[in-house]
Design a protein around this nucleic acid. Structure first.
Lengths: 146, 146
DNA sequence: TTGAATGCAAAAAATTTGCATATTG
DNA sequence: CAATATGCAAATTTTTTGCATTCAA
């Protein structure tokens, strides 16, 4: 495993300035869309990094296994470091809030899928849609909508 | 419950020609992106439906609870009828294949989330990323990538 | 009749690509 | 030095919006 930079180099990717900054920014932000990253980087003192470079870097970092993303909802995907700490994303489809939950909650699911389909689920950053506690209360579970 | 059209009308939406055709097309296709829908509709004999109308209809149908979508992967979301039959989508992040699994597999997950977070998960059309049986075999679970 | 829905064109977003130049290993 | 990465501009792709017209209720 080792550090992200070693991991990059080991796989033939170059460790460049912009690449390093993208990594640091991801570390700081936790989660961010390509656009948010570019903005954050533009505001962090050094020279701004071209948006296209951010995209290409996220792609490279993903291939290198240092970064992943999840689709929390509509809109651009949210990227984060692989070791940012695993957690499920509970996305409320009513109010849009995102709560984090422990991956352990999905342990049985992963087991079932492996057993029944031979599918190795990555439940470490999964997005699950539904209603958060507050919104679930507002609208009855089986009730009318809207 | 009743038919989608009744459900629409009951909620104040109008049942129009294009809207009906979008519903039928979704029924036929199972899953489709807005773009795929528009293409399918353009090829089904009658007049093509403006892409913007497809978007607006999918939005309306979603609000009415007749249609949902899932983000199977990058790219546009995939829409389908709510009663197309519930199933989880197992998306292989290596080969891109999509397998369907029974929602029951996620029963415990839903239970856990409800208990621990009061979160009412909608596991009926959830997308789960990972490696399908074939690709999991090709790359060792903890093995090198690439 | 009258407000909601449609089509079409134009505007925004979100991504990707080409290419000359700068950098890493 | 050779290959990869960057920046910038332009091209794509995806989604949204404005508006006059048509249509369902």
């Amino acid at each position: 495993m080792s550090t992200p930079e070693e991991q990059l180099r080991r796989q033939g990717y170059r460790v460049t300035g912009p690449r390093r900054r993208v990594l640091r920014a991801l570390g700081r932000l936790g989660h961010a869309t390509p656009d948010q990253l570019a903005s954050a980087l533009a505001r962090d003192g050094s020279a701004p990094i071209a948006l296209s470079t951010v995209y290409r870097n996220l792609e490279a970092l993903t291939e290198a296994g240092v970064v992943t993303h999840s689709h929390l909802d509509h809109g651009p995907p949210s990227y984060h470091l692989v070791d940012h700490g695993d957690h499920l994303h509970l996305v409320c489809s009513r109010c849009g809030s995102v709560t984090e939950a422990q991956p352990a909650s999905a342990g049985e699911l992963a087991g079932n899928l492996l057993r029944e389909h031979g599918f190795v689920a990555d439940v470490t950053h999964m997005a699950i849609h539904g209603r958060c506690r507050r919104c679930a209360g507002a609208t009855a579970p089986g009730g009318e909508d809207r």
